[in-house]
Simulated assay, not measured.
Amino acid sequence: MKIWQLKSTFNGFETLGLLDFDSAFVKEKVERENIFRVYLDESLVWMVFVSDAFKKVVESNNLSGLKFIEVWDSES
Rank of each mutant, 00 (worst) to 15 (best):
M1L: 10
M1T: 03
K2A: 00
I3K: 01
W4T: 00
Q5R: 11
L6T: 01
S8G: 05
S8E: 11
T9D: 03
T9W: 02
T9R: 01
T9F: 05
T9E: 02
F10E: 14
F10K: 12
N11P: 02
N11V: 09
F13A: 11
F13I: 11
E14A: 07
E14W: 04
E14Y: 05
T15P: 06
L16D: 05
L16R: 14
G17A: 07
G17S: 09
L18Q: 11
L19E: 05
L19P: 01
L19N: 07
L19M: 12
L19D: 05
L19R: 08
D20W: 13
D20L: 10
F21A: 07
D22Q: 13
S23Y: 09
S23R: 13
S23F: 09
A24G: 14
E28H: 09
E28N: 11
K29E: 06
V30Q: 04
V30G: 01
E31K: 15
E31F: 03
E31Q: 14
E31R: 13
R32G: 06
R32S: 11
R32T: 11
R32Y: 07
R32E: 08
N34W: 01
N34K: 10
N34A: 09
N34Y: 00
N34L: 11
N34P: 03
I35A: 12
I35V: 12
I35Y: 00
I35N: 07
F36H: 08
R37E: 14
R37C: 12
V38H: 03
V38G: 01
Y39H: 09
Y39E: 05
Y39T: 03
Y39M: 14
L40G: 02
L40A: 03
L40R: 08
D41I: 00
E42Y: 04
E42S: 09
S43Y: 08
S43I: 03
L44I: 11
V45L: 07
V45F: 08
V45C: 02
W46A: 08
W46I: 06
W46G: 02
W46C: 06
W46D: 12
W46H: 06
M47F: 08
M47D: 10
V48W: 10
V48A: 05
V48P: 00
F49Q: 00
F49D: 02
F49E: 01
V50F: 04
S51H: 00
S51L: 02
D52G: 06
D52N: 15
A53F: 13
A53S: 10
A53N: 05
A53M: 03
A53C: 04
F54G: 05
K55M: 11
K55A: 03
K56G: 06
K56V: 06
K56C: 07
V57R: 15
V58K: 07
E59R: 07
E59T: 13
S60E: 15
N61P: 06
N61C: 12
L63P: 01
L63T: 09
G65F: 09
G65A: 08
L66I: 08
L66H: 04
L66M: 14
K67D: 15
K67C: 12
K67W: 00
K67Y: 00
F68T: 02
F68Q: 02
F68H: 05
I69T: 15
I69D: 14
I69G: 06
E70T: 12
E70H: 06
W72H: 03
W72Y: 15
D73E: 07
S74I: 01
E75V: 15
E75R: 14
E75C: 10
S76I: 10
